[in-house]
């Protein structure tokens, strides 16, 4: 059985700002990490593999050459092999062009039973590439998973998913795609041994030439949406700050404020 995890390298988003003068994104000196929700997808893949020797976890990342670091992290966590999908011709891809590109790679892999993705990446926050990928591959999907179970015949998975009202349990035929919103509660620290082993695992690179797709379908050219402007969000004006070392005094000031605003 083959499980494919799609992973994305993202900037530590709290450090990304728009330069108010030039209106461009300032990412200088911002650290890159493996998207936390992709890490959760890895957690569920590793859970599934537990006690099953014939499950292979392949991890794929589309991004700049530096995205290799995110793949190494997945290999250290326990993925079996990795594919870096990188090419300048992919630059500027929107969610559609990204999904199409990844789908072409998946079609090249021999038989994938289950695809696990993070529910969204913390930089783009779109949650679109997973479902668009599933549609490109004509396979079913379950989104916002917090856990999954394989049936005995390995033809279906039972997925527990978050909704805005609570949880659902959904059964899905394989092959299929699951987007993951929660993983392991405690993160296992990778050992020195894990790091050494990861370095010995296969990590191949694929480019636009490996896809067999017209260049007009890739990157910015193949994108259906265009970002025309970025700008900093409008900030609220800060109000007054009260010293809370004397709780009764501070509380009274807040109550006065709430009275003025007719909340009390």
């Amino acid at each position: 059985m083959r499980v494919l995890v799609c992973a994305k390298q993202v900037p530590e988003v709290t450090d990304v700002q728009v330069d108010p003068e030039t209106g461009t994104l300032n990412r200088d000196g911002v650290a890159s990490i493996l998207n936390p929700f992709c890490e959760y997808a890895m957690d569920l893949a590793l859970d599934l593999k537990k006690g099953m020797d014939d499950v292979e976890i392949v991890v794929l990342s589309m991004g700049p050459p530096q995205a290799r670091a995110a793949l190494m992290r997945c290999l250290e966590m326990g993925a079996d092999r990795a594919i870096l999908v990188t090419d300048r011709r992919f630059a500027g891809a929107d969610t559609w062009a990204t999904a199409l590109t990844i789908s072409k790679i998946v079609e090249k892999l021999d038989k994938v039973d289950l695809i696990l993705v993070g529910k969204h990446a913390i930089d783009g926050d779109t949650a679109q590439v997973g479902p668009e990928l599933a549609e490109c591959l004509n396979i079913p999907q379950v989104t916002y998973a917090v856990g999954l179970e394989l049936d005995e015949k390995r033809r279906r998975v039972r997925v527990r998913r978050e909704t805005d009202r609570g949880h659902q349990v959904v059964q899905m035929r394989l092959p299929g795609l699951v987007s993951v919103s929660k993983g392991a509660a405690l993160r296992r620290v990778c050992s020195f041994q894990d790091i050494l082993e990861a370095r010995r695992k296969e990590l191949i690179t694929m480019t636009a030439d490996d896809l067999g797709v017209d260049e007009s379908e890739l990157g910015l050219k193949g994108s259906l949406t265009q970002v025309v402007k970025i700008f900093p969000p409008v900030e609220r004006e800060a109000g007054r700050v009260v010293d809370g070392t004397n709780p009764p005094l501070a509380a009274r000031q807040v109550v006065e404020f709430l009275k003025d605003k007719h909340f009390v």
Binding site: P11, V13, T14, V16, Q17, V18, L25, I122, D123, G124, D125, T225, Q226, V227, V228, K229, I230, F231, P232, P233
Partner: peptide
């Protein structure tokens, strides 16, 4: 986008 640090018009 970027967790709310920037706004993008598309």
């Amino acid at each position: 986008a970027f967790g709310g640090n920037i706004m993008a018009s598309i």
